[in-house]
Design a protein around this nucleic acid. Sequence first.
RNA 1: GGGCCGCUAGCUCAACUGGCAGAGCAGCUGACUCUUAAUCAGCAGGUUACAGGUUCGACUCCUGUGCGGCUCACCA
Length: 492
Amino acid sequence: MSSRLDHIAQKRREKLDRIRKRGIDPYPHRYHRSHTTEQAIALLEQCEAGGKETPLVSVGGRITASRLMGKISFLDLRDGSGKIQLLFSQGRLDKQQGELFDDLDIGDIIGVSGRPFRTKSREPTIEVEGLTLLAKSLQPLPEKWHGLSDVDKRYRQRYLDLIANAEVRKIFRVRSQAITAIRSFLNKRGFLEVETPVLQPAAGGALARPFVTHHHALDQDFYLRIATELHLKRLIVGGFDKVYELGRIFRNEGVSTKHNPEFTTLESYEAYADYNDVMKMVEKMVGSVARLVAGGYGVEFGNTTIDFKPPWPRLSLRQAVKKYSGIDFEQYPDTDSLRAEMVRLKMEVDPKKRRGRLIDELISTFVEPKLIQPTFLLDYPLEMSPLAKAKPDDGRLVERFEAFAGGMEIANAFTELNDPIEQRQRFLQQQKERRAGDEEVETADEDFLAALEYGMPPTGGLGVGIDRLVMLFTGGQSIREVILFPQLREKP
RNA sequence: GGGCCGCUAGCUCAACUGGCAGAGCAGCUGACUCUUAAUCAGCAGGUUACAGGUUCGACUCCUGUGCGGCUCACCA
């Protein structure tokens, strides 16, 4: 990027000056269109069906292509709804508009009025009678045929990506529809949408390194939330029986095709429910999202079809790990024996990891990649789940499930631990482990513990990674493809 | 953070073993009254990411830096 303008931008500035000199405002305040391009085409079809003449319409949008043929010219005009062809005929426009037409470029935003009709090749077209410049574009757009493919540029200048690449526009429409579908599903079931703090004195509810920031007036450090869990459960204590939050959380960790430092989660909590109820809700909810954005339970992913039709298979975690890795972790009740077995299988094992984290590694290495069709894994070891309630018949396991699809974890849920004394002990146990070397453990949240002491009803909680869910629905191989402005290193 | 790969015109891409940096689109000039990746003729457009080095000569080889991609580590 040199400071000097390239010759294309130079030319466009000259055109801008010419337009201004003729007394035309190249950036007027408003333009009231009568139709979107989509509506204009629908109107044309209606009139054709009814054998009626088409009325005058006005549309606005960006010029995306031009085919100048001497006395007549065809331009493509795109707005948020779609695209329509424009026909400019010499003689149709007055002198001033004719001069303006000559100074138009691909990329300019214009408004036109005229009657829709069909050309010889049946293309819906507006024969332009009135032309208004709405915004002069000073920079050339990416190439019309190949679009924009430089990944760096696509993410940094997402607007160009959206202008140039229809598939990208599609992805973010699907994302929006999926989130709308989730809201609507939960609202219909009586859930209350709430907002909880992003800035917290301690970041709890998950195991992750937080971002730190500083509040000047309070002269106090704050952490950006790594989960919404602990505040939502306070609201269950407060008497809202069904709450959810769709919100951004922040984790100061590695960036990869599956991790962005800020990402979106859904967390929901339902009083008087347990993880079995939540399981039923998840498969129903994701199924309903699939039907809405994909038109059915089947969603194309890679070279297979994922079928989200409920019910999804349920498999105990122990069975799953045994099936895919050959290790029955129940036979290795402590960290050392399990680690020894993993080493025997030639796995590289971080010596700092304790049993829970080792089992987690078995899941992500052997199990997760195999779970393409939606599957629930249930009943996790207690040491991996400090906020979940133990199973009544086996104190080493908790009532927890994770849902997988497309080889990714898409949901995590459990019957919430609501015994304040046990919760405190679990936090203390975690802190012991922190001292033993495992850095990322739950920090005790005294205010949360105080809330539990007032009594929280039995509750089923859920967390869903929205970005990964959207990846499933759009076939995305990278989380950056479903986040409009993914985090990138700043360019010097 | 490690490994591998990439960075050439506004965009998409070429350029052999080190030998004058090139094409399409976009742009400019001209022709053209139904095109739609319009067509045809002509013109212009470059710090080959950046900084060094080797060489008679570097887009090409070497070293370093920046940014990106993939991957491993990390990451419920």
